[in-house]
Every structure is written in C-alpha cells, then in structure tokens.
Write a protein that binds this DNA or RNA. Structure first.
Lengths: 215, 215
DNA sequence: CGAATTCCTGACTTAGAAATCAGAAATGAC
DNA sequence: GTCATTTCTGATTTCTAAGTCAGGAATTCG
C-alpha cells in the first residue's frame, strides 16, 4: 500500500491517490459519508474500484484521508492570521471571518462538512472536532470573549455568536443547489461574492458591534 | 394499507403510522435519507420493520410522508403571518424571521432538512422546493425587495440576504451536536434561546437595516 | 359473540454496495 | 533491455439493508 495521507503527491501512485482523495473530498462533503458510493468515486477519479482499496484500505480510511487533506489546506491558509495578533479583538475577529469566507469559497467542502457532521453527531464529528473544527471554534470564542470584555462587541453568548457567524457565512455557499432550485441563480459570481463579503463583514458583524458603522 | 399522509391519527393503525412518521421525521432530518435505516425507525417506533412497509410502501414514500407532515406543521404556524400584511416591509421581514426562529426551535427538523437536502441537490430537493421551502423563500425575497425599494434595508442581493438570514437563524439549532462536542454546552436552554432571538432579530437584522438601532 | 377486516410480525428473498484477491500492466532502477 | 517493484484491474465474495409474503393477532362492527 502507498502512503495515504500525504499532501504532496509523488510518483504515479501518489498522483492517483491524490486524485482519488480530491474526488472523495468533493463528494463526501457534498453528499455525506453514506450517500457516496465507492464506485462513484472510482468513476470520478477514472480508476477501478479496486484501486481505491489499494490506496486506502476502506471507505472510512478514505474519508479520513480526504478530511486530513482538507485540514492541511485550511491550516495553510490560516497561517495568515498570525499577522493579526496585535490588532484589537474585534479587528481580529473581522479578519478571521474574512479569511473564513475566502477559505469557504475556495474550499466549499469545509462548510458542507461542518454542516453535515455537525448536525449528525457521532464518531465522525468527534474526529472532525479534534482535527478540523474544534481548535478554530475555541480560538474564535476566545477572541469574541475578549472583544466583549473590551466593550467592542455586544454581550451575546460567545459560542452562539461564533457558530451563528460561521453559519451565516457559509449559508449561500453550502446552499447553492437550493438557491439554484428556488431562484434559478448561481451565487458564486464574483460580484455576488463581493456583496456577500460586505454583507457578512460589514452589515452582520457591524450589527454585533457596540458602535456600528453607519452607512 | 392505511392512509399514509394524514396528520390527525385515527384508529389503531393511524396512531401507529403517526408514530412511525414522527420517528422517521426526526431521524431523516437529523441524519439524511440514506444514513437512516428502516430497522432504526422500526426500533424507534417500537414496531417490526415489516410494519413500516405495511403503512408506507417503501422508504421514499415514508420520507415524503414525514416531510408532508412537517409541511403541515409549518403551514399551521405560518398562518399567523397573515396578520402582518399591513406592516412596513422591514417589520414584515422581522416578524417572518421571528416566526421562523420559533418554528425552528419547535420543529428543528425544518432547518436540518433544508441544510441536508439544500446542499445535496437532486430530486428530493426539487420535491422539497415545491412542497416546503420554495414558496417561503420566494415570499421572503419579495418582502426583502420591497424593503430595499422602500429604503429600509441595505441593497444586498435579496436571495443572498434571505438565505443568509435563515442560515444564521438555524445555525445553533442545527449544529447543536457540534456545539456540544466543541464547547460542552447545550444551546437550547430558555435563556440561550432568548439571547439567540435578540442576536438574530436585533443585532444581525439591525445591521442589515439602513438606520440601525443603537444599543 | 363471532366473523370480517385491519393491523402486525417472523422468516425469507433480493438488490446493491463494500471489500478481496489473483494476476496483468506499468514503472523505474540498473 | 530486463527484472524487481509498484500500481492497477476484472471477477468474485461478503455483507448489509430494503423489500416481500404468508399467516397470526388485534380490532371493530353486525
């Protein structure tokens, strides 16, 4: 068996494994674990189903490999936040949210996975919490608490606020199929993304701040 | 076979069918269609698996019956909105959102179903759009457009705004398992619900309004 | 009560998806 | 080029969950 969770593909096998993993990430995040079929991933990656079992023992391992890859992608992006440590708490929150939005557009699997497994509970959620979502959630809560303590943010329960902001942020990204169905439009155009960022960061976050900016 | 989609159970069979349907709604909405097993619903309802097939032909029919029941529950609640027709657009939006939040706490299946099927697309989403979510989405968009035209709301894309508000509203409800996992708290206490309503209706919606209320 | 109907079940069949495996094909080191 | 190794596949098996069915139990209505 080849290396499974590596991020940088090497050699023929590595490239194949990476392709499988990418297809799996897309499918798992859109559909959830059980409605994805190994045959579908194999077809999407252009290999036989047995090849999936060659590179990854079973479906659960493949799922974890895909999630670890996603985690690595996200972590790489979040390095940028280290530069914001000396800003005010509310500015840190704003930058963290801005980055979260950009990551979510770039890697829509993130928000979908959070929604899918965050609702269902169970062992996959526990795994995700320790590897992907828990640390960020708790970091954001700490920032929110500091912002509230500094009188910059209205004193809502920090956990609620963090989850709500994230849910609001990924709403139109996750629900693109529903938006297509209900309204016949695609919410991913550049203008729509810009309006979205403004809406979340200025309007919604503004509404949470103690001294909201006027229009 | 007994009547399947009736809301008011009648007779022994009707009660059993209603129990099955309620268990199915809870499970389907939390886990999605395919991770729910007929055996699990049967166990939850305290009947044999064959009884499910007696009252509902197959799994897809049971799913639709559960969703129709949910739809009836929601429709009954939304009757209350008829009284708000003479308010300003933004006040109508606020009342609609307040009701949406109350319904979502009372029937958490609604938001979960929207999230699950709204991400996945496919025929179940099409079915839901015509029976459950589409009309409300389009009604809300019309209200938002009117509010923007009246200069009461900031001019964000109406569809985006509606979806985002709903996503923000149900975030902490849907993601209760993740909140439990990440923070060890339950977001459904009465105080938490009150704070939640205030956060959504005053802070977030306030941030979207042209003349936000000050704290 | 008693018979007709409705309701429910255990045992079984079927379908479909995951996992395995022996061997073929491709790759790469020499 | 050739041989060892890695990578991949078609065919098959195993497993799981949906769905069927004949008949027994409960209910209802005369």
């Amino acid at each position: 068996m080849a290396e499974a969770a590596t991020t940088v593909p090497v050699g023929k096998g590595g490239r194949t494994a990476a392709r499988i993993r990418d297809v799996a990430l897309e499918m798992f995040s859109r559909l959830g674990f059980e409605r994805v079929m190994m045959a579908g991933i194999a077809a999407g990656a252009g290999v036989s189903q047995a090849t999936l079992h060659y590179h990854f023992q079973d479906k659960a391992q493949l799922w974890r490999a895909a999630m670890l890859h996603l985690s690595a992608l996200i972590s790489a992006e979040e390095r940028r936040l280290e530069a914001t440590a000396d800003l005010s708490s509310v500015a840190q929150l704003r930058e963290a949210m801005r980055l979260f939005l950009r990551i979510s557009w770039k890697h829509p699997a993130l928000g979908r996975i959070i929604a899918l497994e965050g609702m269902a509970g169970g062992e996959r959620l526990a795994w995700l919490d320790s590897h992907l979502t828990g640390p960020r959630n708790r970091r954001l809560v700490a920032i929110v608490r500091a912002a509230i303590a500094a009188g910059e943010l209205k004193p809502f329960p920090a956990e609620q606020l963090v989850i709500t902001l994230q849910a609001a942020g990924v709403g139109v990204i996750n629900l693109a199929p529903m938006i297509q169905q209900s309204f016949g439009i695609d919410p991913a155009s550049p203008e729509a993304r810009q309006a979205h960022e403004t809406m979340i960061l200025d309007a919604l976050l503004g509404g949470l701040m103690i001294q909201p900016e006027q229009t």
